[in-house]
């Protein structure tokens, strides 16, 4: 196994066919109604015509993954650059859903649900299902350095036609394990330039985790405080999450029909 794997998605090649979505569903036996990947159209007016691309919503496999840092049960861990899930450990607390700056993990049927990079396949020497099937070969997988170099080379090629083309994820959160070859600035795709974890995770990192290391009794007390704090924070974010309609909208609606017109 490589030391550090990564995906890349070349949005110049992607034609939005959703083969990855169904390959992922069947390969990973994803529960009916759930999905690890959604693909939607991004269309904008440009000059006298349009600009269009597809947007993929799926786990970015951050190196400094807020979900891993916040997970209290060790369900989420980093394995060779991928963010793995040990389903048996999940308590469905939902911290990860709050911590993720991309709103990716979600709780379904009392456990966390998100792309795990087909770790079982990778460990068996195979590519993840999505990369294996992608008809336009837009999804690549391999050693991160190789994937990153390939993505950079593609961007250099794209610049003539798309001056704002760029690799997304080279440095963000310690470097993402899913690199995107974007045709435009990240904001166009609804991606944060500098993704950060939420306040909740900061509380957890600075207060709860250090405290719990040696001082179990104190930890219980702090936990109580954190609980109250987190509840407030949650109530606040809950509203935001719903108005922003992040993951659930993409999962529930028909992605092929989902499109934003910005005119």
């Amino acid at each position: 196994m490589a030391s550090r794997y990564a995906f890349s998605i070349d949005l110049d090649r992607c034609i939005g066919c959703q083969a990855c979505v169904v390959a992922c569903r069947t390969g990973n036996e994803v529960a009916s109604g759930d999905a690890y990947i959604t693909v939607s159209e991004e269309i904008r007016r440009k000059d006298n015509g349009f600009w269009g691309s597809f947007a993929h919503k799926r786990c970015f496999h951050c190196t400094e993954a807020p979900c891993v840092e916040v997970c209290p049960t060790g369900t989420l861990t980093k394995v060779n650059g991928l963010t793995a899930v040990d389903m048996a450990k999940c308590s469905a607390c939902g911290y990860c859903t709050q911590a993720c700056p991309f709103h990716i993990p979600h709780v379904v049927d009392n456990h966390v649900s998100k792309c795990v990079g087909c770790l079982d396949q990778v460990q068996a020497g195979e590519e993840p299902w999505c990369a294996r099937t992608c008809p336009s070969n837009a999804i690549r997988f391999g050693e991160r350095e190789v994937i990153l170099a390939e993505a950079k080379a593609k961007v250099a090629k794209l610049r003539e036609r798309y001056p704002n083309a760029q690799v997304y994820g080279e440095t963000q959160l310690g470097g993402l394990g899913l690199l995107m070859v974007l045709l435009e600035a990240p904001g166009v795709y609804g991606l944060p330039e500098a993704p950060q974890s939420s306040a909740t995770i900061q509380t957890w990192k600075t207060l709860v985790k250090p405290a719990s290391a040696g001082l179990t009794a104190l930890a219980a007390g702090v936990m109580g405080l954190a609980f109250v704090f987190a509840r407030r924070q949650h109530a606040k974010e809950h509203a935001e999450v719903h108005t922003a309609a992040p993951v659930e909208a993409a999962v529930v609606e028909t992605p092929a029909q989902t499109e934003e017109n910005h005119d």
Partner: peptide, 24 residues
């Protein structure tokens, strides 16, 4: 359709489980 965002009930349950994880 399951909602991926955390419901209050799940959140409480989850927090209790996390406490449990620490304690026991």
């Amino acid at each position: 359709m399951p909602r991926p965002s955390v419901t209050r009930r799940n959140f409480l349950k989850g927090t209790l489980t996390s406490l449990g994880a620490l304690a026991s």
